[in-house]
Design a binder for these strands. Sequence first.
DNA 1: CGGGGCTACTTAAGCGCTTCAGTCCAGTCA
DNA 2: TGACTGGACTGAAGCGCTTAAGTAGCCCCG
Lengths: 360, 360
Amino acid sequence: MARRPTIKDIARRAGVSESAVSFALNDRPGVSRDTRARIRRVAEELGWQANSAARALSGERSGAVGLVLARPAQTLGVESFFLQLVSGVQEVLSAARTALLFQVVEDVDAECAVYRRWWAERRVDGVLVVDPRTGDPRPALLAELGLPAVTIGEPGPPDGPPVASGPQAGTGAPPVSSVRADDAGAMAQVVEHLHGLGHRRIVHIAGLPGLAHTVRRMESLRAEAERRGLGPDHVRSVVTDYSDAEGAAATRRVLAEPQPPTALVYDNDVMAVAGSAVAAELGIPVPHRLSIVAWDDSALCRVTHPRLTALVRDTAGFGRLAAEELLSVLAGAPTGVRESERPRLEPRESTAPAPAHTDS
Amino acid sequence: MARRPTIKDIARRAGVSESAVSFALNDRPGVSRDTRARIRRVAEELGWQANSAARALSGERSGAVGLVLARPAQTLGVESFFLQLVSGVQEVLSAARTALLFQVVEDVDAECAVYRRWWAERRVDGVLVVDPRTGDPRPALLAELGLPAVTIGEPGPPDGPPVASGPQAGTGAPPVSSVRADDAGAMAQVVEHLHGLGHRRIVHIAGLPGLAHTVRRMESLRAEAERRGLGPDHVRSVVTDYSDAEGAAATRRVLAEPQPPTALVYDNDVMAVAGSAVAAELGIPVPHRLSIVAWDDSALCRVTHPRLTALVRDTAGFGRLAAEELLSVLAGAPTGVRESERPRLEPRESTAPAPAHTDS
DNA sequence: CGGGGCTACTTAAGCGCTTCAGTCCAGTCA
DNA sequence: TGACTGGACTGAAGCGCTTAAGTAGCCCCG
C-alpha cells in the first residue's frame, strides 16, 4: 500500500521548485540540461508517474480515448473482427501512454448518451467510432461537442465521399477523421472471382442494412453484376442481423428457391460458417454445387470442412491506423481520411467452378 | 463546442455556495430538502456532470475500473467468452456510472506493468483479473499496491481453497475478492454424461496448462475417472494453447493412436469446432464413432453440423457477479468470494452411446 | 435571557499538476 | 558603469471538486 510519489517529493529531493520539475518532466524549456537530467533521475528512482486526474484537471488531456460498441447483447461475441481491431488500437495507444475506455451498449442512442457523458465528465480526449451508419447521428454530435473522433470502417473508394460525414464535401478538412475500407473494391474482387468461375446466380447474405458498409457492398454488387449483364433476378443481396441464426435462415430460404444461387457471399465469418452447415444439412456439396465466400477471415473459416474462401483483411492494422489518426488529431493535426489496405481474397476449398447447367 | 457547466455555475444560479451544491449533489446531509431540490433542478437544467478528473483529484474514486486481457495476439478474438463477460460487467458498471478501462497485452508481466501504471496514475479504483493461473503473481502485486481486485474464474468447489490466493487459508477475508466457477463439478458432470453413455476412453483437449482452471479440470477428470476404475491409459488430458490449430493437431494425434478415444472433451468452443472438422476430414462420423463435448457454448456450437453438446454457462452473469463484487469492495465491504452458477451440460447431436467393442 | 444544541449553510484549504508572471543573476554592449 | 537581455528558476494562481472547520440563525430549557 505504498504511497504514490508526487512532483513535490521530486522537487524536495532534487532541491528545486515544483514548477522546475514540471518543466523538466514535460520537455519544456526553462531548465538547464543538468537540472533536467537530475530531476529525471530522481523521478525514475521514486517511480513517479503523473497523476492522471491532476493532469487532466489542469487543462491537459485526460490521456484516455473511448470506444463504444453498440450491439444488442446476443449479437455479441463471436465475430473476431472486434477484438482484433481493439488489439491493433491498443498497440498504438499504449505506446503513447493513452488508456482506452470501452463500453458495450445496446444501440446508437445509448452510444450517443455515453459520448455526452464522457464529454461532460471530461473522461476522454477523443473517441473511435465503429460501424458507421447511413444517416449516422454520431459525427454531428461529436462535432457539436468538439470531441475529436475517428470513424472506423467508412466505405471508401472508388465511389466518392464518405456516406456518413455529411454535406461539406470537398471543402478542406472533414468534421471528423475517418479510416476507410474499400468495401466496393473488395466486392468487385469477389464478383470477379465468382464470375470468372462461371457463377451467374449469386446471393449476397448481407449484414445490418443500416450500416454504411453494408449499403456500399450491396451497391457495388449490383453495379458489378450489371456491368456483366446480370440483373437482380440473378444477383442480389438479402439483409440479416449478422447472427448465425439469420445467416442460416437466409441460406435455407435462398437455397429453397426454384432457381437457387450457385454462390453465396456472406458478410461475416459466423454467417458463412452457419451457411455452410445448412448446406451440409441439406446435402448440398460445397463447393461442387455451391460456392461460399466469407467476408472477414478468422480461425472459423479455417476450421470448417471444407475451409472457406475468405476476404482477408488486416484488422489489427486497421485498428492501428485508426489509433494513429486519432492521436494525430489530438496532437493538433487537421482531421483527415486514411485508406486502409484493400482486403485480399484468399481462395480456399469452398469456391469452385459453377455446376454446368445453370445459366437460365 | 459548448462549455461544460461546473459546480460554480450551479452555485451562482441557485444562489448558494459551491459546497452546498456539492453536498446536495452527493446526497450528504447539510442542506434542506428545498435547497437540495432546487440545486438538483438547476444542475439538471444545465446538464451538469461531475468532472471526473476533479473528483478523482480530491481524494474520491476515479470512477473507473480496469480489465487487462493477457493473450498473445493470435490467440485473440474467436472465443465468445470474453466479450460476453465484458458485456455483463458493463451492465453493472454503467448502472453505477463507472467506466471500464480495457487493455490487451501480450503476457502476464505486461499485465502487471499495466496495473502498476494504472495505480501510479490513479486511473482506476480497482481491477478485474481474468485467467487466474497457478502461482499467479497478480494477487500479491495488487495486494501490495492496495488496488482492490476481483479475480474472475478461479476454480471453486468442491475441492478446497482457491489456487491463486496464497497461503492465508481460513483466516477471515482473502487478500483479493474472487468470483469462482465450479470447474471440478462441471467436469464431473461431463464425465458422468459420457460414462453413462458407455464411453471408457476419453481424452480432454485442455487449454493452457498455466491457467488455474485448466489444472482443476484435469485434476477433476482424473479423480472422476479413478472413481470409476479408469486409469490414465483410458482417460487423460492433453494441453494446448486454446487455438484452433493446436486443437486440431491434438485431435489428429489422439485419433491416430492404436486405441483411439471414443469421446473428446474440448476446453473451448473453437477447439471443439476445429476438432469436429478434423473428424469429418478423417471420415470419422460424429457422434456414432466419436462423441464431442465443448466447454463453453456459443453460436459456434450451434452452427456446426452436427451441433455440439456443450457446457453452457451464463458468462454475462459471471461478469455481472464480478462487477458487483468489485463495486461492493470499492464501497468498503470486506473482500469475499462469490460462487457462480454451476454450468449446465446441454446434450446436442455430438454425443451418443459409445460404439460397441471398445472396452479393452 | 443567556447558553447549549440544532440545522443550514459558508469559508477556506487542499488534491497534484500546469503555467503565467515574476525574480535573480550572469553576460553584453554602449 | 549602468541599462538591457535572456536563461534558469521560483511563486502563486488556478483547474473543479470535496471536506473540515467555522458561523449564523433558530428553538428549547433552566
